[in-house]
Amino acid sequence: MKDINIEDFRIKSQINIKDLPTKLDLDAGKKDLKKALRKVSEDLAEIQNAMYAHGKYAVLFCIQGMDTAGKDSLIREVFKEFNVRGIVAHSFKKPTELELKHDYLWRHYKALPARGKFGVFNRTHYENVLVTRVHPQYLMYENMPDIESVKDVNDAFWDRRFEEINNFEKHIADNGTIIFKFFLNLSKEEQKNRLLRRLNRPDKHWKFSADDLKERALWDKYQDCYEDVLNRSSKPHAPWFNIPADDKPTARYIVARILYDTLKTYEDIREPELPAKEKA
């Protein structure tokens, strides 16, 4: 099985999304990848236990990708060995009536992990520069003072949103949150195969929605928006990683390795020693 260098996946400069790989051959079968993933997940769980006791860092795990990219199953498999007390997952759907009465980042702020915990954002605050950019009419529900119609949504509006998101991440990073952002890069051909699988397998029917086909028709527009996200918001304190997602076991292993190889560099994350008086 080939080894990987996590820096090969980090977005460090301006990219063209068409040049980013959606496949990676690690010269390993599914059993080998599953075994390797379990080992890394166990090692990650040990780090999380130390983090929980240490209480000075939180981890924010952000995952984005097109429909069928494998977000849910990746989260399940990567964190399978974790103690449930140390991880909290949030799947952000359509904003509620209450959430729409606040600014768009409010629901993300209040879902942030406490120090010592892993927080998982399955779809993230970046939906606010992805879905709403593809469908700007959704912004009308936010009832913003300076936006009366879709015509008011211009480049300056999106520039401001990106600045706000970057500031949000810088603020939480400065206060002890270690941020990971993963883009599951799925090919259009593989998405087609996965959508057809949902139709052909009765146990997958519940996952299929006609809306998936409507969104697929907007593939190119979504790819342009993702490219802009990767180029404008991958920062040293909050990097994006491109994860080839056409093969799910490979994608899961790469994500787990990026988490582990990064977190093990934090030498100050360790269990506190028992005070001598308590020990006595």
Rank of each mutant, 00 (worst) to 15 (best):
L186P: 04
G86A: 09
S13K: 15
W158S: 03
K221S: 11
D261S: 05
K34A: 11
L218F: 04
C62E: 00
D25V: 05
D8V: 05
S91Q: 03
Y222F: 15
N49Q: 14
Y253K: 04
I15K: 03
L37M: 02
K12C: 08
V78L: 06
E215V: 09
P275S: 08
L195E: 04
E97W: 05
N193L: 12
V84M: 09
L112T: 06
H54K: 12
R270Q: 13
H135R: 12
E169W: 03
N143Y: 04
T250Y: 02
E278N: 14
D212G: 06
P244F: 11
K188L: 07
D3A: 12
V59P: 00
M144C: 05
G176H: 04
L37K: 01
E163S: 13
W240Y: 02
A238D: 00
L105S: 02
D146R: 11
E99R: 09
F9Y: 15
W206E: 06
F162Q: 05
M140V: 06
P113Y: 03
R85T: 07
F61G: 01
L263Y: 03
E271T: 14
L186I: 15
K18D: 13
K35L: 10
R76D: 15
K101I: 03
N200V: 08
L98R: 12
S209W: 02
N49A: 12
K181A: 10
Y57G: 09
P113N: 07
W219M: 08
L186Q: 02
R198I: 06
E215W: 08
S73P: 04
I63E: 01
Q191Y: 00
Q137Y: 07
A156M: 06
N154Y: 08
D224V: 14
W158P: 00
S91K: 03
E267H: 14
A256T: 05
R201E: 15
N231Q: 04
D268M: 13
D27I: 08
R201V: 13
Y266N: 07
I165T: 03
Q48S: 09
E97H: 14
D19E: 14
L24V: 10
K277S: 12
F182D: 02
P239F: 04
Y138S: 05
E189K: 15
D268I: 13
R216F: 07
P113D: 09
K277R: 12
H205S: 08
Y253T: 02
I165M: 09
Y104D: 01
I15V: 15
N167G: 13
